[in-house]
Amino acid sequence: MRIARFSIDGNVAFGAVEGDAAPGAEGELVLDIIKGIPFADFELSGTKVPLAKVRLLPPVLPNKIVAVGRNYAEHAAELGNSLVDEQGALEPPLTFFKPSTSVVGSGDPITYPPFSQDLHHEAELAVVIGRMCREVPKERVKDVILGYTCANDVTARDVQRREKQWARAKGFDSSCPLGPWIETDLDPSDLTIQCTVNGEQRQLGRTSDMVRSIEDLIVHISEAMTLLPGDVILTGTPAGVGPLNVGDEVAVTIEGIGTLTNKVIKRG
């Protein structure tokens, strides 16, 4: 099931997306409005509205976004980072936070931060947590996942290098586009991830190239903190990250989910 969050006539609701989600067919999609919220038992109301008549919102408003860096070997290499320690052992996953205020939805603008001159795209598979959990064993990870969506871990690369820690570089307003919806029925183990800028392909990878699996990441993260319904885990980006400029349209497409599209604008 594809679950979208949307607004219509000033009201916010969730709906099940019905129809062909292939590129160019979005105008034929309809939303069956959900009774309740998708993080508990819910029913479909049978009341349907065309997707073209609503405004898509970020599919969730997470309490926290836990992001993982250097989870694709080629991406780590392109930025000059090693994945192993001095003894040759694999380093633990590198994790960081993005605040809830960084989240925007598909179709919303990415605002170029005035303190940066080198903004980059990073296409990622995002995991949406479906239930409160802590210290999740590997065999139970699937039980705590609601589904998956597309993400763009937009990064002020010059600030990241200069400040040595990533709070401002990756946490500024609009630095975490999510969407267009959550896909609940998906095997994430080997999906194509693609990023285009103005229609030109920049990134192309597969989730099977992750250094750490989704199961390993959730085990690692939930050892340290409680995950809440709606929390999001960003699983890393494949190689090919590169610059974004004001006026660019950046699109992240993940096999089996759909396309997240945003335009870069100058902060007013």
Rank of each mutant, 00 (worst) to 15 (best):
M1H: 08
I3Q: 03
G24E: 05
A25W: 00
L29P: 02
L31G: 12
I33C: 13
L44C: 08
G46T: 08
V49E: 06
A52I: 06
P58M: 02
P59L: 13
L61W: 12
P62M: 07
R70Q: 14
N71K: 11
E74H: 09
E78K: 09
E78D: 10
L94E: 09
F96C: 05
S100F: 14
T101A: 15
S102P: 11
V103E: 10
G105D: 12
S106Q: 10
T111E: 15
P113I: 13
P114A: 08
Q117A: 13
L119E: 08
H120K: 02
E122F: 08
A123W: 06
M132K: 14
E139W: 09
E139V: 13
R140M: 14
D143P: 07
D143I: 02
L146W: 02
G147R: 08
A151C: 14
V159S: 05
P177W: 07
I182H: 04
L191K: 06
T192W: 11
I193T: 05
C195H: 05
C195W: 03
V197Q: 05
L204T: 12
R212M: 15
I214D: 00
E215R: 11
H220N: 07
I221R: 08
I221V: 06
I221A: 02
T226P: 03
G230H: 06
V232Y: 06
L234F: 11
T235R: 10
T237V: 10
P243H: 01
L244H: 00
L244Y: 00
E249Y: 11
T253D: 08
T253H: 11
I254F: 07
E255Q: 14
E255K: 07
G256F: 07
K263S: 14
K263Q: 14
K263Y: 03
I265K: 00
G268S: 14
